[in-house]
């Protein structure tokens, strides 16, 4: 088991280093970092000093390793545009994005899985067909349109919910702020969370449905029926469990991409999170922020993959055996 985890960790580290190198190439070769940091009228000598200070004259290998080592300590340098350490800027915006993403993930799972199971088990019912049709609409509706639609309905027309911002936030500890504890924070969260969850929910629903239909065709389901087990036992004891195992991987990745998709939601609702920061950095070619965001997303996916892998081992006895066999 431990050998398995170590092997997984090493593979994850490989991915992180690869992404880190891409980030380094972006930082070093997309535009000149020095030109970005200084004004046009800065004298050449000053530029050279800065160049020296940043180590830009050293061999590329040295620069790359330093970049990676710094990144490993969450040091991504100074934002070109804001002249602040990138890690501080990201840290300040992390809570807003994570809270939004986590609430949206929970929403999309709570709605998506039951809807998918229902549409698979009652695939010919009118309601299942309606869900299937609506899910196609859900997939076809770009996230930003969903957001605009909600704003138009609940902010402009009904005036029930705020259309932008995070509401009042409460600090927890030294660096986390939460909007979950104030009324205005919760009200502000509703529409962004639904917007972000909707697309993922339809994906999860369609995935669960397809996977469950596949499982329902399996021999062991037929054999379970042939033994006279109740439909309930066949569906929920046999089929559901086997459906959720492969669904886990994709859902894990979907939840990871919620953070990335929050770029759009944050823009629509002026949500002060990392996505907005990233978008600004793209518009301003603020490479350190772009690089840091890229690494953050890669880190997130690596963690999610790791968790999914471990869950697999816990749920699937075949893998458990393989893992034990390999380590013992």
């Amino acid at each position: 088991m431990i050998a398995f985890i170590i092997r997984r960790l090493l593979a994850s580290l490989g991915v992180l280093i690869a992404v880190g190198l891409i980030a380094f190439v972006m930082f070093r070769y997309v535009g000149d970092p020095v030109n970005q940091m200084v004004g046009i009228e800065t004298p050449a000598a000053e530029r050279e000093a800065l160049r020296q200070q940043l180590g830009l004259n050293e061999p590329v290998i040295v620069q790359a390793s330093r970049f990676l080592l710094n990144a490993a300590r969450f040091d991504f340098g100074i934002s070109y545009q804001f002249r602040q350490p990138v890690s501080v800027m990201i840290g300040a915006r992390l809570p807003a994005t994570l809270e939004l993403a986590i609430v949206a993930s929970i929403l999309s799972l709570l709605a998506g899985v039951p809807l998918g199971v229902y549409s698979a088990l009652r695939r010919d019912s009118a309601l299942a067909k309606l869900f299937q049709a609506l899910s196609l609409v859900g997939i076809s509706l770009p996230t930003f349109l969903t957001g605009i639609l909600l704003i138009y309905l609940f902010s402009v027309t009904l005036g029930w919910l705020p259309s932008f911002g995070r509401g009042a936030v409460v600090p927890i500890g030294s660096w986390w702020t939460t909007g979950l504890l104030t009324m205005s924070g919760l009200k502000s969260l509703i529409m962004p969370a639904i917007t972000l969850a909707l697309f993922q929910m339809t994906l999860i629903m369609r995935l669960v449905r397809a996977e469950m239909l596949e499982v329902l065709r399996a021999d062991y389901i037929r054999f379970a029926r042939a033994r006279g087990l109740s439909e309930r036992a066949v569906h929920f004891h046999h089929a559901l469990k086997n459906t959720l195992v492969p669904v886990m991987t994709v859902v894990g990745l979907q939840l990871g991409s919620i953070v990335a998709f929050s770029i759009i939601t944050e823009t629509v609702f002026a949500w002060p999170g990392m996505g907005q920061l990233f978008l600004q950095s793209i518009q301003n070619v603020d490479i350190p922020i772009m690089a840091a965001y890229l690494l953050f997303i890669a880190f997130l996916f690596v963690i999610i993959n790791l968790v999914v892998d471990l869950l697999y081992v816990i749920v699937d006895p075949r893998l458990r055996a393989a893992v034990h066999g390999a380590s013992g």
């Binding site: 469990k241 749920v315 699937d316």
Partner: peptide, 19 residues
């Protein structure tokens, strides 16, 4: 099913739920 008529399928590998 199971009580009056039982059935055995071809492939024992896929007849049992792996989980």
């Amino acid at each position: 099913r199971g009580r009056r008529i039982g059935m055995i399928f071809q492939d024992p590998l896929t007849s049992l739920n792996p989980l």
